[in-house]
Amino acid sequence: MSALYLRLSTLTGLTVRDLLRQNVLYLILIPAALTLLTLPLFTALTFEEQIKFMRDFCYGTMSIFGLFLAIIATAQSLSNDLEQKTIFTILAKPLNRWEYLVSKGMGIGLILFFALTILTVLSAGLFAYQEKSLLEAAIGNATHPLSSQELQRFSDQLWSPALLMAVLILYLKLILMVGFTLLFSTVASSSLFTIFTSLMIYLIGHLQSTAREWVMGSEGLSVGMKWVVGLLSVILPDMSFYEGAERILLGATPGLSYLIPPLGYTFFNLLWILGLSTWIFESREFR
């Protein structure tokens, strides 16, 4: 095993253990699980509506709580090291600063994976429960009995493997946010600033492509301004790359190649984020 691997795996492991010990994970994961458990309280009129609601509700819960976890855990991870001065003993070791950042990111990535897996399993359990109770009610309904074809269609829609792909796309989106939050952490002195900026970036990321198109298409804008907007669009994320998850929720059942654009986009974004954050972090002084 190479020394690099040992250093990376040790710090990743330490980050994971730290996060598992911190309240932030449970403060987010437990409300998320409780939110999911309220799913059976909502009953829609038709099966189609019910399936849509179940999918949306579970995905929405994962998405919101996952976003909070990604941003808060990342922002706190670095600021905790600074506040508790652990960073002095860690960076005093023969460890490159980029290794520190990558390990932090990987640790949080693993925690996110763990959290999304738990929520996915919980969602699947709720799907199974809802399916059973809805079908029992439908079979017992003498006036509108369901045909076996309808039953099959209901089950197929509920258990579509594409839903896992939607979770994977969500994971990639959250990993991108981890990258951005880590980048802001390298310059910020307070985690509150990092969290706020990251949430802003998340919002702007959704508007980016439309705003760019609007600015680039408008006539009266100066060349300089267009350059600025162009440059900003290079840095800011384009969240429309992750809209595939929403399409899946609306019923699309794409192949695996559907994952390539968000996967590639996330990977290359993480590359430049790592380059810039290492640059900043290398020149950062710790007093």
Partner: peptide, 27 residues
């Protein structure tokens, strides 16, 4: 480096701390 007020994760044992910092040194 031995800092003035060292901070280590409280949930680790002394041996685990040494192993962790050894790992961080690539041992």
């Amino acid at each position: 480096y031995l800092p003035e007020n060292p901070y280590f994760p409280k949930y680790l044992t002394g041996r685990e701390i040494l192993e962790t910092y050894g790992g961080l040194s690539g041992l």
